[in-house]
Design a protein around this nucleic acid. Structure first.
Lengths: 202, 202
DNA sequence: ACCATAGCGGAATAGTTGTTCCGCATTGCT
DNA sequence: AGCAATGCGGAACAACTATTCCGCTATGGT
């Protein structure tokens, strides 16, 4: 039953965002709210648990990028694939872009500490992995030297945030074009721009 | 008194975001909530009115960019200056990035129509101006040809959203570096990257 | 000075949502 | 079957905030 709730939470948060009601989640899971609370201390814990699969996926994505033979190819695949992950989950976007992870919104329940710990651990992992990915690219001359790992986080968030713009404008693939521009901006030098993906696909 | 309320609203929304309470605004203005409601039909109208100055500023920024002798310089100044505007107003950021302008959040009161009209007018203006700015750059060979005006909006929002990341991380200038990368990505060709601004200034 | 009135502040209202509580059903044991 | 206990659903509770209402005050005219 825990699984059914997690599944429902994942779906509801993915398409309504974090503002979705626990009543919605419960209804979707076909259970009462109390049952949700019996399995998860509070909404934050539920959100966190429902995102654990996303955390894992993100981590897998970076690792794959690092293991890719060509550093730059790995980098590009991370950006495109990793960011694509976000395009399917509005809740996860709000979670990351909105800074929920470190803002007041998460200072609610007694489980605060646990939530913060899990998030910090994930952030730490991502930070280190991104740094390695970046360094590898820079050593190979694939990425300009003046980019810092924290820039990468910010650029990722920037790219992610453009997903909502596309969704809003009925142009769901526009974030791929934004990613294209950003990737080109990260190159040390180039004679011609890498063509952007068409505005409508994906 | 209307002015005092607007002033207070501007300040409160700027540093607490759109979630700020009308009680906060009233207190800041040194008046009761009822007085706020006597001057503005509801919260949306107040928000809108308090942002009108930002709308005007944004419009001025684009126009200046278009009138700048060198198209690319104008473009850069727009991005840096225009986006800088956002860095000082969390509410305005949420308004633009969060898609408040066209999302359900604004389907509240009876003033809905008025609010939507004003926003649409501003968006229309910005869209056209950005398009002109972009075209001018492309004709001068300063910006790659495959960029579309709607990409510009998305890129602007992406850059804006990175402001919050910087604020969160205690690195308030990181959005300037994000802008730097994006601008470089918009160039048709270049031999070396344009150096990014240092991570700590501004 | 008195009165009428416009305009104010803050309490009361209404709606939303996270969280808890309670009576009931179901299940498993004897 | 009878009983106990586990676990459920939904109603009740609490907190928050947009919005409205009401009694009072201050002002301006006579």
């Amino acid at each position: 039953m825990t699984d059914r709730i997690l599944q429902a939470a994942g779906e509801v948060f993915a398409d309504q965002g974090l503002g979705a009601t626990l009543a919605d989640v419960a209804a979707r899971a076909g259970v009462g709210v109390a049952t949700v609370y019996r399995r998860f201390a509070n909404k934050d814990e539920l959100i966190l648990a429902s995102f654990e699969i996303r955390f894992r996926q993100s981590q897998t994505d970076v690792l794959r990028a690092i293991e890719e033979a060509d550093p730059w190819t790995g980098f590009v695949e991370f950006f495109e694939g990793g960011v694509h992950l976000f395009s399917q989950d509005r809740g996860f976007r709000e979670f990351v872009v909105g800074g929920y992870a470190e803002s007041v919104g998460w200072a609610r329940a007694s489980s605060h500490d646990h939530v913060v710990t899990v998030i910090r651990r994930h952030q730490q992992f991502m930070r280190e992995a991104l740094e390695r990915m970046l360094l590898r690219c820079q050593e190979a001359g694939a990425v300009r030297d003046d980019v810092h790992p924290s820039d990468l986080l910010a650029l990722t968030m920037a790219a992610v945030s453009s997903i909502d713009f596309g969704a809003l404008k009925g142009n769901p693939a526009i974030h791929r074009r934004v990613i294209g521009v950003i990737l080109d901006g990260l190159r040390p030098a180039r004679n011609a721009p890498t063509p952007l993906p068409p505005a409508t696909s994906g």
